[in-house]
Design a binder for these strands. Structure first.
Lengths: 314, 314
DNA sequence: TTTAATCATGCCAGTAGTTGTCATGTTTTT
DNA sequence: AAAAACATGACAACTACTGGCATGATTAAA
């Protein structure tokens, strides 16, 4: 076997093992101890952060976490990785910030000048715009780790009504519109609630969980099932059509007529009403709601509140 | 110089050159032609897609695009790259889809079983939720490339008023809320307009541009300057405070008093009024607008429209 | 058709690199 | 003091690499 291949095998072996003696490597790979010492010198020259502890019970230690075998990326693949990193730039906190930085640095420094310029250019021609939050989410990584380890948590949480303590089992973590959310099973209320990770003040890890809960994907799909189906029937002007087409909740429901106007006639969940009512408020005369009455009442009540609030300012 | 290092140099040299003869390499690196042939055999064995063209004017050709020197990633760095890729999953179209897939595959296949499980787990515990659009954006990559090459474009665009033809210079491309947008200088209107990339029906590349326009970052910041400053003064209940704190446009403006209530008193751009009015509509009695009158009028007018639209349904 | 420019492959001897063994030190723990 | 580990040097045996030469095959140009 060639020296290069053997060195690679040893590199992977020792970076996984972290602590070892020359004798162990000698036995594992059937090479003399003298050669092991020579090899370790080579690895160290190649940049592997390895150091020796002298004396009895001594040995070698490797500092980095486990290494992958060397990978040959094409320039385009490297650019695509930078592109992906770019999409994360607009989050204030991320679970893998330090790793992203070091991976980024390794990639960038092995690019040729020309490719470096390409990457720099990419970053000035493309952006992932998110409202960049000033809100800190310091517990994000901790919470994600607990979720992956399937453990339960006691948290201090800042809710509408003040600070409360909760005993929960996290389902997962997701980002939406620049904020991090965590659906979790609340043992007191015996159901899954949605928490904002930045509002978690402190966590105490508790016991590991034996029960099996839904995972994040299942939770997503179940959340979007219709629990209280209700008929939504709306007539739209052509401007109303255009705006509804830009709304993720409604775009698939709009039926367009030949003259450009359109309508929505579909079954939606009652819980969505509060979510879509601001849109119909904004649309005003461009959307004539036929059903449900509940939605009309929400709009009317809100309109009355506004008018009474501002009538004396006239 | 060791064989491994020389092979690596040659690998980088030929993957950049794409077509070459054994003689060229022999001259470049001062090695015999016989050895060049042996080296190329080695590179081919290592998986480099290289093939020979026989006969006079023949030579070697390399198929992949330019390669980077081999990179040693730690397991955590690899995980962070997968994490970044995860954040792109919710876009229907991306400029680097094929490269992302191949990079992903290279990384995944060199992970150990344990790390593979970790990556799989990560994907079931974390998500970047975006309204997953059904809207195709087939011209995204083409448009981005034109922007990077600093060229002008003629486009067919589907706007409010129907299909139009425009002569533009793209500034850049950005994603927001699952859709792709392109600010571009419109030569007819002599100003920068914002286009939705999915509404571009076709493009014709035209001449390269000599003039220098703003870049994407500059455009972003200039767009958020105050062009028509106006005073926004609002009194908030504690619930009003809570909700404003969740709005990216307002969170930094809210001043909280000791009793939990608060207020906003700040200078904003007049153009933002239409954007923030739905929030104050939703807040209803939790937000008492003191200034500007324009905002109050928007709210009152809208409320009246709604009431008159639905009064007969009572 | 011939010739020149290529790749492809085998052989061999000389050179360069790698390995194992032995020897000698040093450091640290028992 | 002994044992267990790293550290390093010398040297001979072994292995791998290299260049040169020869031969063949394929293709394009003269």
């Amino acid at each position: 076997m060639s020296k290069a291949k053997r060195l690679l095998d040893i590199l992977l072996f020792v970076s996984a093992k972290k602590k070892f003696t020359a004798q162990e490597i000698s036995d594992e790979f059937n090479i003399s101890i003298r050669t092991v010492h020579r090899y370790i010198l080579d690895l160290s020259d190649m940049g592997l952060p390895i150091y020796a502890e002298q004396g009895r019970n001594g040995g070698y230690r490797v500092l980095t976490s486990r290494l992958l075998p060397p990978i040959l990326f094409t320039e385009d693949e490297a650019v695509s990785i930078f592109f992906a990193f770019q999409s994360l730039l607009y989050y204030r906190d991320l679970p893998f910030n330090t790793e992203i930085k070091s991976a980024s640095h390794k990639l960038y420094s092995s690019l040729q000048e020309e490719a470096k310029r390409k990457v720099d250019q990419l970053q000035s021609y493309i952006a992932f715009w998110n409202p960049k939050r000033a809100i800190e989410t310091p517990l994000l990584k901790a919470v994600l780790e607990v979720a992956i380890e399937n453990k339960n948590l006691h948290i201090h949480y800042e809710s509408k009504s003040g600070t409360t303590t909760k005993h929960i089992h996290p389902i997962g973590v997701y980002a939406h519109d620049g904020l991090w959310y965590m659906p979790a099973f609340d043992f007191t209320k015996q159901k899954i609630l949605l928490f904002r990770v930045d509002r978690i003040l402190s966590i105490i890890e508790s016991e590991e969980n034996k029960e099996i809960f839904v995972n994040l994907k299942e939770w997503f799909s179940s959340t979007y099932e219709h629990k209280q189906p209700i008929r939504l029937h709306v007539l739209l002007s052509s401007e109303g059509v255009r705006q509804c087409k830009s709304d993720p909740n409604l775009e698939d429901l709009v039926v367009i007529k030949e003259d450009g106007t359109g309508n929505i006639d579909s079954i939606i969940d009652k819980g969505e009403l509060n979510f879509i009512s601001p849109l119909f408020y904004r649309l005003g005369v461009h959307a004539q709601i036929v059903e449900p009455k509940e939605l009309i009442n929400i709009l009317r009540q809100q309109a009355k509140d506004i008018l009474s609030l501002y009538q004396e300012n006239d």
